[in-house]
Design a protein around this nucleic acid. Structure first.
Lengths: 340, 340
DNA sequence: CTCTCTTAGCTAATCGATTAGCTGACTTTT
DNA sequence: AAAAGTCAGCTAATCGATTAGCTAAGAGAG
């Protein structure tokens, strides 16, 4: 690789002049300018980002740390982030913390040594992990997707409460009163928040799920399957179910089919899904979806603002609203279901 | 960020000593060593990769360029690559060429200026794009997934011929003789290769598909749906179909259902799929799968070998074999199908 | 006691680019 | 004609780490 010195020598000028021509940062006479450009072409010179970075303290790199690359939700974040990062003129360095806080810690130090200009992180650790000191002296950070306690950093999250509310209200509007739920783990905000939203929606109409009609499916397909099978096999099964995520919805649909029930005729299913589609299920699911692309774009916009020093505020928290997407998995409550 | 100078000052030693301690590259007395380590911890010093880079000419970065991030196949490559790259002590810089040769070209120059130590590329351009001169003077490259003409670089590909053969042989072994195929675009090796394998397998038993029983589904679900619907709606429909990829298989299954046919009772379906599962279709598909993880690991092993100068050969081409995964979408030919 | 050998740790050059600040030629002003 | 001003282009410092080569102190030999 040719260096700026080679070019300077070939053109019979100083490196400063070459730099001025290449960056168009100072006036250079047409005579010298053309000699420099000729030498650049001749030697196929491309300025080394590494050297430029050392001087400027910038790396043009933005790190993205996701919790589980194999999960389609994060895969979509990666897709959106790559496009956004490229559009802002940076390159994307990708890390997978695999839901392990200790791996995440090692990644953080790696990001520091790489000199990344900033990072978008889907946090996996407990709140304590993200106290400001962890980022102190380092590059700006935006936390994406999962809400953790206020760590004094920018965050972009989803309104899980609203997701549960929207899906449940849809079922309520169809006339359902006996609604059950397959929930996620209560220690995750994605689990507890959505359930709380569902309960809030019902409470707003003076209702509450029957005892035993709210079960944890652990965000897992197999668990959701067995829990749903048990719940729907009972004589007083709910007429509708709110399922707190997409993989569980697949398990629930399987349970419905295996019990000889039909969806939506016998039971209405509404869910919250992080990504579109839930694997092309047969009756397309009525669900709330996360605006993954918008969220990711916003996270990167916030990050780039910080990197380029355009923001003064200490920390901003943007909350996105999920969107209700109506499929064919819900039907109005049939009169036969209405108790006498 | 603390620099090596700050640490040297704090510990009362020279920068050379700090470097020696940090890199364990020379003997340092326990006394000084501990003072240095204390200062490192105190100042949260992490050596700047940028500076180290400039000196060593290495960047510890490996670029991965995929053709379409939104495609689950490439998403799996990304997942496997991130893990492999991390295991080798590098970091992954991710690019999406979006199937566009001109974007790919820009990415190549970006990779050069970033000073990446090497790249794994899923090529999208025509052969001419990858002639050796494009990489000349640059870092080592391994082409992954798609085979292009011999460009003098290392490649890791899949045996598409074998994929078509294996799936078709399975159908033949079940007694099927009238087998049709929904193929991909013939200009792609993944399209033409798999079809050729299917034809070869039949020819090996003195058979050939009937006229009109081989149709192009363009690797698209909707096209595959309408083509399959047309093909299977005819009175002399084939008893079995070989579908050349996973998304098309979803379309075909939908067509089967919409025609009131049952799989595998009325028609057997075997496919080739790049990733596992094909979205959890109802009768699980019998298919050939790509060993994505193994392929990606091998590509990175080859790349790291080159980067670290362990290989002499001009170029190596590794071809992986697809694996047949038996599901429930194929059944033996029923006697009613056998012509009198 | 002097000379040589060893070696811990330091000084300073280096990687490639940017840029503050200087030089000297030329122009303008009085 | 001398002083002042302008500015194209150069010199050299700088970013942070590594490392060749040097220094000086201690050990061992004679």
């Amino acid at each position: 690789m040719a260096t700026i010195k080679d070019v300077a020598e070939a053109a019979g000028v100083s490196t400063a002049t070459v730099s001025a021509v290449v960056n168009d940062s100072a006036y250079v006479s047409p005579e010298l300018r053309s000699r420099v450009l000729a030498a650049v072409r001749e030697l196929r010179y491309a300025p080394s980002l590494v050297a430029r970075n050392l001087r400027s303290g910038r790396s043009q790199l933005i790190a993205l740390v996701v919790a589980d690359l194999a999960n389609p939700f994060y895969a979509r974040i990666v897709t959106a982030a790559e496009a956004a990062v490229a559009a802002w003129g940076y390159s994307l360095v990708l890390f997978n913390s695999d839901e392990k806080p200790d791996i995440e810690k090692r990644i953080f130090s790696r990001i520091r040594t790489l000199g990344c200009d900033g990072s978008v992180i889907v946090p996996v650790g407990a709140e304590s992990h993200y106290q400001r000191r962890d980022f102190e002296g380092g590059a700006p950070v935006v936390l994406l997707g999962r809400s953790i306690g206020d760590a004094g950093v920018d965050t972009v999250t989803i309104d899980n409460l609203s997701a549960g509310k929207q899906a449940t209200n849809y079922l309520l509007d169809l006339g359902h009163r006996d609604i059950g739920s397959i929930t996620g783990p209560s220690q995750l905000t994605t689990g507890s928040g959505r359930l709380q939203g569902m309960l809030d929606a019902m409470a707003a109409r003076g209702l509450a799920p029957k005892t035993g009609h709210v079960r944890s499916g652990e965000f897992r397909e197999d668990t959701a399957y067995s829990v749903a099978r048990d719940l729907l096999g009972q004589p007083d099964r709910p007429t509708a179910l709110y399922v707190a995520n997409g993989v569980m919805a697949i398990g629930v649909m399987r349970a419905v089919a295996d019990l000889g029930l039909r969806c939506p005729e016998d039971v209405s299913i509404a869910s919250t899904d992080t990504v579109a589609g839930a694997g092309g299920l047969k009756p397309r699911l009525t669900r709330t979806e996360h605006p993954v692309k918008d969220m990711t774009n916003e996270a990167l916009r916030m990050l780039v603002d910080r990197i380029e020093g355009k923001v003064a505020e200490p920390s901003r928290n943007v909350v996105f609203q999920p969107a209700l997407v109506v499929g064919e998995s819900c039907s109005p409550l049939k009169s036969s279901h209405i108790p006498a």
